[in-house]
Simulated scan of single mutants.
Amino acid sequence: MPEVMFAGPDGRLEGRYHHAKRPNAPVALLLHPHPLHGGTMNNRVIHSLFTRYQEMGFSVLRFNFRGVGKSQGRYDGGIGEISDAAAALDFLQAVNPAASMLWVAGYSFGAYVGMQLLMRRPEMGGFICISPPASHYDFGFLAPCPCGGLMVHGEDDELVPVSSVGKLVEKLNTQKGVSIDYRTIAGAGHVYTPEQVENVTNMAQDHVQTIMGGSRMALAAD
């Protein structure tokens, strides 16, 4: 899990990167929660996903948005952070030119940024959206959504009502060719307990394996 520094639009960005042995391994980009509310790449949901993607044979990157940790720059209201995510994807693609598939996974604010990135980079093939802040941001830009993916939300989320995410999923599922795998976690709030994090990670793995069409061992050919 080597530390990496790569060029961002407002200075260098700090990340942790695992490189899979297979040259055509799929890749995943992980995006952390809101920088002004304690979000970093070391968030336990993001860290757990990083480990699980690694176990599944992916090349995977998690990084700090501008102004977080060693990343240069300052918070930019989401606009600059979308550019940071694009720079991170550029880094991933540069070191994985033969990647078989590109995934983005985000938690909370990171889920919003991830979906914005999805609209800007048509080469993305799948997404994991955890606790998307559907009551705080307008997700109307997903018209049309370029691909299907997984959305996970806590049924007792005190910041983002589960009903707002349900409405978003319902709207996306009306789009031609788009299928959202929507799963809720009973008793979970916006911040997940360690046991709930494991549940989220298992859901993500199950979805990825279903889409990739292979078992965990088949994916993890390292």
Rank of each mutant, 00 (worst) to 15 (best):
S108F: 11
V169Y: 00
R183I: 12
Y192K: 07
R62Y: 10
Q209P: 00
A94D: 15
M101G: 08
M212C: 10
G73Q: 00
H37C: 08
A221K: 10
G214I: 05
G189W: 02
A28M: 08
R121Q: 10
N24I: 01
W103K: 04
V95P: 01
P97Y: 11
C129E: 02
G106W: 01
F141R: 03
A28S: 10
F6G: 10
M1P: 13
E3F: 05
P26N: 06
N43L: 08
L117Y: 09
G39L: 05
F91P: 04
Y53C: 03
A134D: 01
A134M: 06
K167S: 15
R22Q: 14
A7V: 11
S48E: 10
E3S: 13
A105T: 09
E81C: 04
F127G: 07
L49K: 03
P161N: 06
Q54T: 15
R121K: 14
K70N: 12
M151E: 11
L49H: 05
E3A: 13
V152Y: 04
M151R: 02
P2I: 08
A25I: 09
F109R: 02
M5H: 13
D181A: 03
P33C: 02
P161K: 08
A188I: 00
V178N: 09
V4Y: 12
G148E: 06
M151D: 10
K70H: 10
V197W: 06
V60D: 04
P122H: 12
G140L: 01
P144W: 09
A188W: 07
G110N: 11
A99M: 07
M203S: 04
